[in-house]
């Protein structure tokens, strides 16, 4: 029984470790010293303050507090996160400067610098 529990725990840990960042998940990522999570809140048709000191491998999460559907869509097509009202979505950051916008409301824009 103990072996089975350890095996299951190992499988779950492995699955969690290799799972890609989900665009629709609201679960918090594993907290590690190396990688941090940065949350951008969407409210009243605006992206909140852009996170600073973002490093490659960090998680960037958008949380939609609006009553409308939004998205975080990269100008260069690198990512396209759909955000239904009240949901969150995330990506794993890679180095560079990326501009994004809401494909449903193109006046909503933001830019994050990842070191």
């Amino acid at each position: 029984m103990l072996r089975m529990t350890i095996l299951l725990a190992g499988l779950l840990a492995l699955a969690g470790g290799i799972a890609p960042a989900s665009a629709s998940s609201t679960a918090k990522p594993p907290a590690t010293a190396a990688h941090r999570m940065h949350v951008i809140v969407i409210d009243q048709m605006q992206y909140g303050p852009m996170p600073t000191d973002v490093r490659a491998g960090d998680i960037i999460e958008w949380t939609n507090h609006d009553i409308l559907e939004h998205s975080a869509t990269a100008r260069d097509g690198h990512f396209d996160v759909d955000l239904k009202p009240g949901t969150s979505g995330r990506i794993t950051a890679t180095a560079g400067t990326f501009a994004f916008f809401c494909k449903f409301h193109p006046t909503m824009t933001g830019t994050v610098v990842v070191k």
């Binding site: 009243q44 048709m45 009553i67 409301h105 193109p106 006046t107 909503m108």
Partner: peptide, 16 residues
């Protein structure tokens, strides 16, 4: 108030 924010965004989009 939420609607006003939304419609202001619509107005900006329409003007653009």
């Amino acid at each position: 108030e939420t609607g006003l924010k939304l419609f202001q965004s619509h107005q900006a989009h329409a003007e653009h």
